[in-house]
């Protein structure tokens, strides 16, 4: 496998991403079960809510630049499935950048479906890697999607990291909420947003 400091970094960022996604899901479940978020969680949740759009933009940007780094600098040839995932990821970076600048949380209605398609593609690609039934484990000069180019920590392949990127974008967009401009827009009860997270 290719050994590279930046690829190792992407892999570790993906692990942090997974931890974040799992934490959000678990805390959202706890909040729902208890009928409200724990007191200590509220400032953290609000902080992530306000930062969600810029963070989602950063995730899409890192995924896009990482993908370009792998193909243009490390010269790993993108297979067909890679290209389909790129179709979902690359525009997200630009659109989320604009949305973060305009603080337009409504963008979730456009990006979440796109990222969901991305998750599906990544999952399918990972399954092809796991079960390369029609392709031998040697290299020829074409680029089969089953070829595993990068495998960090024993499980993080390129489509796995892409899938985590998509899930992270979805999670952050579900956490995002409109910036409060007046007190009457603020609900002291945390119920509605927890439901959004679960949606």
């Amino acid at each position: 496998m290719i050994t590279d400091t930046l690829i190792k970094m992407f892999a570790m960022l993906a692990i942090v991403g997974v931890v974040f996604i799992v934490a959000v899901i678990v805390l959202a479940l706890i909040a729902r079960f208890r009928g409200g978020a724990p007191e200590w969680l509220i400032p953290l949740r609000d902080g992530f809510s306000d930062l969600a759009l810029p963070l989602a933009f950063c995730v899409a940007l890192v995924c896009t630049l990482g993908s370009l780094y792998l193909s243009e600098v490390k010269h790993l040839p993108p297979c067909d499935m890679c290209w389909y995932q790129r179709i979902c990821m690359y525009p997200s970076a630009l659109i989320l950048g604009i949305a973060a600048f305009r603080r337009d949380v409504g963008i979730r209605w456009y990006i979440i479906p796109l990222a969901t398609v991305g998750v599906g593609l990544s999952t399918y690609h990972r399954l092809i890697e796991l079960f390369p039934d029609s392709v031998a484990s040697s290299c020829t000069n074409d680029v089969p999607c089953s070829t595993v180019w990068v495998k960090e920590f024993g499980f993080l392949t390129i489509p796995t990291m892409a899938g985590i990127g998509f899930l992270l974008i979805i999670t952050l967009l579900l956490l995002a909420r409109p910036r409060v401009s007046a007190p009457d827009h603020e609900s002291p009860d945390s119920e509605p947003r927890d439901q959004e997270v679960m949606a």
Partner: peptide
């Protein structure tokens, strides 16, 4: 108040 405190911590 809390938001202003949590954001630098997150960043």
């Amino acid at each position: 108040h809390d938001r202003k405190n949590a954001m630098p911590m997150i960043l």
